[in-house]
Nucleic acid binder design. Structure first.
Lengths: 216, 216
DNA sequence: TGCTACTAACTGACCGGTCAGTTATTTTGT
DNA sequence: ACAAAATAACTGACCGGTCAGTTAGTAGCA
């Protein structure tokens, strides 16, 4: 967790961004081997440090995992989620934007590595899982649910269950990412996250089309 | 893996199903704590045995994990998958059947525990992940893809990408299961796997409806 | 029925290795 | 010279796997 910048170190022997370098190394190794099979010594070596130096920046191995998650969720502001939840009118364009953004993020290895890591280590690290959940899922899912409910109320989409439909919207992207990473399953010719999203959206939008003759 | 029945033991002190009991205990503990944090001693105790006795039935801790997966995928026959792939006509009823069956299976904790375990331990146990992949995913996904391709060719559904659409079909069920387990995220009032599937199918089927005026 | 011989099933102490975390010491920048 | 930064050697706990020995059941025989 704490990247100790508060007690600002007057100078640093080599770089100034040591904690970040350590986290980068840890993320790589955790991703390759999992948390339990990665030793602090390995992390230190990859970051170009000795084991002891790692403990200068992080109080424990667990703190590295926690630090990775807090670093990843840091940039997430509530603003985007609130915009989604507050949208009036046909929700589909917003859903499209959201999914394309999500897909773009999940195509970047550096970004998707953290959620996948949390996924793998959740049973052994429930605190970290809860942290991630609160920062990400507990904000994203209700926003989409509200968006859908508003769309149903306004007659812009069919009368589906807003909460369950969030799964229909996001599930394919998540599943695609997880299957490709965990089992190496990919369509011929790469991950094709963009094509997946477009194909999915075309089905989804058609499936949400309200029946002819209405408008509240 | 090997449950040694071949050299049939003339008699057994207590039950005959000791290896199964050990696997049950292992599955519970692996699910609760993850593989790495579970000790063989814990497994033995929960199965009502000593650690040494576990090694009478399984050559290593890894073999327990492998044994769980082989036990789980044993009942899977190729017949069901072949039936799906060979179906002629509108694929939607078959997709509905398939998803409802999948949902029912994933509602049973004993059944879904194994895929989730594989998911968590895949980076540390690539062999086991590959085993699961070959037995399950490499059979299910191509079957659905073939079913969809046939449906498109016959004009029963819209001209979507068959391979990518498998993700739209299965993703929500998988994501729902994973989110609920990993993060404890559930809709109000339980997992509602059945309701999720019905809601999903209604959107999906409408989204696959072919445009008016065709039929090959 | 009761005794002996036999063995499958099981136990728990132990060994060897690993690794998170600590500390005494050295290096480096100012 | 001094202190921050970093190191490398070390410690102690933990755990997978082994094995010599114990227990509880069966079989055969009288």
């Amino acid at each position: 967790m704490e990247t100790p910048d508060s007690p600002r170190p007057k100078f640093r022997r080599r770089a100034e961004a040591r904690p970040d370098e350590v986290l980068d190394a840890a993320l790589e190794l955790f991703t390759e081997q999992g948390y339990a099979r990665t030793t602090v010594e390995q992390i230190a070596r990859r970051a170009g440090l000795s084991k002891g130096a790692v403990y200068l920046y992080f109080p424990s191995k667990d703190a590295l995992l926690e630090g990775l998650v807090t670093r990843a969720i840091g940039p997430l502001t509530g603003a985007a989620f609130e915009m989604i939840a507050a949208h009036k009118g046909d929700p589909r364009p917003v859903i499209g934007q959201f999914l394309r953004m999500l897909a773009a993020a999940m195509s970047d290895e550096k970004i998707r590595a953290v959620p996948l890591l949390v996924l793998h280590e959740a049973p052994a690290a429930p605190d970290v899982a809860a942290l991630f959940r609160r920062a990400v899922l507990d904000r994203a899912l209700p926003a989409i649910t509200a968006l859908l409910a508003q769309g149903v109320a306004g007659g812009h989409i069919r009368a589906i269950d807003p909460e369950l439909t969030t799964r229909t919207i996001m599930g394919p992207v998540l599943a695609h990412m997880i299957l490709s990473r965990v089992f190496g399953i990919e369509p011929e010719g790469g991950l094709q996250m963009e094509k997946l999203v477009e194909n999915h959206l075309s089905i989804l939008f058609a499936g949400l089309e309200p029946p002819k003759g209405d408008a509240t």
